[in-house]
Computed example of a mutant assay.
Amino acid sequence: MTLLGHNSADLTVSIKVRAFNSMTRFCDPERLEREISYPVGATIGDIVRDFNIPLAELFLILVNGRDVAPGCVGDIRLAHQLEDGDVIALSGPVPYSFGYGAPVV
């Protein structure tokens, strides 16, 4: 985590994390959308670690609707830094997708 200055240690960013498909088992079933505060400089990797999600099971991460796992399965940008107000969507493979071995047409 990179701090912005000597007085930035107490700053936080507030984000929403939403779980879809197989990622719901890593969340409270009553709260598939959670608001969480992280210290400034937190990353996608911090979320993955805090939710105890195995990277092999993570198929798609969207930050404000934009894919941060471009290209291949497993190529996830864990270093993507969170910003205040971000909405993070976590998803496992979707049936009839590349993640399940089906060709995407």
Rank of each mutant, 00 (worst) to 15 (best):
R18F: 02
I88Q: 01
T2G: 06
L55I: 13
I88P: 09
I36R: 04
V87K: 12
F26D: 08
P70A: 01
I88Y: 04
V68P: 05
L90R: 03
E30C: 11
V94C: 03
S14T: 15
G99V: 09
C27K: 02
G74L: 10
Q81E: 13
G71E: 15
S8R: 03
N64W: 12
R34S: 08
R49D: 12
S37V: 00
I53E: 05
I88M: 10
A69N: 06
R34V: 15
A9W: 11
R66V: 14
I76N: 06
M1T: 07
G5C: 04
E83G: 10
E35V: 12
D50V: 13
S37N: 04
G101K: 02
T24I: 14
G74F: 07
K16C: 02
L60D: 04
V73W: 11
D84P: 08
M1F: 05
N52C: 13
N21S: 14
R31A: 15
L32Q: 03
D10L: 11
L78F: 10
V104N: 09
D84A: 08
V63N: 04
D67W: 09
I15T: 03
T2I: 13
A9E: 14
A69W: 02
L11G: 01
I47T: 05
F98G: 09
D10C: 08
E30H: 12
L78A: 07
E57C: 10
G101H: 05
I36P: 01
